[in-house]
Design a binder for these strands. Structure first.
Length: 335
DNA sequence: AATGTCCGCAACCGCCTGGAT
DNA sequence: GATCCAGGCGGTTGCGGACAT
């Protein structure tokens, strides 16, 4: 998987490096260091440009470089750092001993980005389903009310069809909208989308589309369907989020921005509504279950890192019995 | 076995930044 | 302040191995 070696119009070799060239460059740099990359190849006896030498040294020959697969821990760190700072490959690589910016960048493009694309697709499906469900719900309201604005009267036939529809779709897709109210203030780091699935799940419970431009606060506000929620973002990516006081009280000020995983802040925020500690081993489903403080919620993890999550009907009447996650994060299926 | 397609990754390219003059 | 230039960075390319048909 190397490029053909050739000589350009300036007489500079390009393409794959030979063992002899590697040996020359290594020997020279180890002995004299790199004091000027442009002049170095001339003194080292290489027909390469300085840039090429620098790249070869930095990405391949420099002592201490790790060769081999990126570990799960390294991948998690890459994802976390990328979420925080974007495509700052050199900065990210600096946090991964023995890894180069090129390696991190390549890994991102060939592994992680692909996965994120799949998540985005899942989010799109969620939005489409939400829209579809909303349309169905509106049509039911229309049919159930004989005094609707446009005067459509319902008959037994259409009611039957609505009932069937509700049994097969609605009763399996709406989570409870209970009068959950919070007091106090939640502070959490702005979410920049690594694990957007959990936000999508919450949002999907509500009645709105969601996309990567939504902040965690916006999603939470949407989830609680509370227009009076106060949201403001201060410096340091800190978002303050307030909800009116009510039966569920949360006093003081919480800050989850220091948690290792950025997207974990929202899970922690939810979890704090319940009464339990939370740590990075919790899946989204577990945190959701805890949030609803529902011990009879069923959670099971099968093969392929798939987590099934269900809540009892009486909790809210209409709910989703089945949310499926892959890798504890990606929602792949809802119904 | 032959051919086509996909994918990983080394290497290149062009742009940006900051220091020197 | 303007210009030059080396170093650094992120985006992209293209080769060849792996896999599918």
């Amino acid at each position: 998987m190397v490029r053909h070696c050739f000589v350009d119009k300036n007489g500079m070799k390009k393409g794959a490096w030979s063992k002899e060239e590697d040996d020359k460059l290594r020997a020279y740099v180890l002995r004299y260091g790199y004091w000027n990359w442009r002049l170095l190849p001339k003194y080292a006896g290489l027909a390469r440009c300085g840039k090429s030498c620098r790249l070869r040294w930095m990405n391949y020959l420099k002592p201490g470089l790790k060769r081999g697969d990126i570990t799960k821990e390294e991948e998690d760190l890459i994802m976390e750092l990328h979420n925080q700072m974007g495509n700052k490959w050199s900065v990210i690589a600096a946090k991964l001993p023995g890894r180069t910016d090129n390696e991190v960048k390549n890994y991102w493009h060939s592994h992680i980005k692909k996965r994120n694309t799949q998540k985005t697709a899942a989010t799109k499906v969620i939005a489409e389903q939400t829209s579809e469900i909303q349309t169905l719900k509106e049509s039911e309201d229309l049919m159930l009310s004989p005094n609707t604005a446009n005067g459509i009267a319902c008959d037994t036939t259409s009611l039957d069809s609505v009932t069937v529809l509700q049994d097969t779709i609605w009763s399996e897709t709406f989570l409870p909208f209970e009068p959950l109210e919070l007091s106090g203030q939640l502070n959490f780091g702005e979410l920049s989308s690594p694990d957007f699935s959990i936000l999508s799940a919450l949002n999907w419970v509500g009645d709105d589309s969601v996309n990567s431009s939504h902040s965690g606060a916006e999603v939470l506000a949407n989830f609680w369907a509370e227009p009076s929620a106060s949201i403001n973002t201060s410096s340091s990516n800190e978002t303050n989020f307030s909800l009116p006081s009510g039966p569920l009280e949360l006093s003081g000020e919480l800050n989850f921005s220091e948690l290792s995983s950025p997207d974990f802040s929202i899970l922690s925020a939810l979890n704090s509504v319940g009464d339990d500690s939370v740590n990075s081993s919790y899946s989204g489903a577990e945190v959701l279950a805890n949030f609803w403080d529902e011990p009879s919620a069923s959670i099971s993890t099968s093969s392929s890192n798939e987590t099934n999550f269900s809540l009892p009907v009486e909790k809210g009447g209409l709910f989703s019995p089945y949310i499926s996650y892959y890798d504890d994060s990606m929602i792949s299926m809802f119904l």
